[in-house]
């Protein structure tokens, strides 16, 4: 196997060469960074998610004067199924976190904090 990097001026011929693995790792990291952001799903903590989700919900779903905290029940402020779907799609797009229907129980998605905890917990099948 021959890898040639003309732009950086070196040629690697041995697959066990650490430079090859370094190159692979760099490509993989770059690919992850451009497709799902800089963080790996399991690197994100529930607190990070709470902060991020609050920001998203305040800017796109809630009224300016809405009284809302991480523990406010979604149904209390009238967050409906379409708004919840927007939140779930936001998690998928920005954090590569997919919550399957079985985990979308009323308790798991009662508030931003509950949703963040559910999102960070490993899914039962994994």
């Amino acid at each position: 196997m021959i890898i040639t990097c003309s732009c950086v001026g070196f040629t690697v011929t041995d697959p066990d060469e650490p430079a090859v693995w370094l190159l692979y790792a760099s490509f993989w990291y770059l690919w992850r960074a451009t497709t799902v952001g800089m963080k790996e799903p399991h690197e994100v903590t529930a607190d990070d998610l709470v902060r991020d989700l609050l920001c998203f919900i305040r800017s796109t779903i809630l009224a300016d004067n809405a009284d809302f905290s991480p523990d406010t029940p979604f149904d209390k402020v009238g967050i409906d199924s379409v708004s919840l779907l927007e939140i779930l799609l936001y998690l998928e797009r920005n954090f590569d976190i997919y919550i399957d229907d079985q985990r979308l129980t009323p308790d798991n998605i009662a508030s931003v904090r509950q949703l963040a905890i559910t999102a960070c917990a490993p899914s039962p099948g994994s």
């Binding site: 779903i61 809630l62 009224a63 809302f68 402020v77 409906d80 708004s83």
Partner: peptide
């Protein structure tokens, strides 16, 4: 119909603020 009002607010009451799925 889908209610386009921002959630947690008190209005607007007047005028239709909907879209559709």
């Amino acid at each position: 119909p889908l209610n386009l009002r921002r959630k947690g607010g008190s209005g607007p009451a007047f005028s239709n603020n909907v879209s559709f799925l």
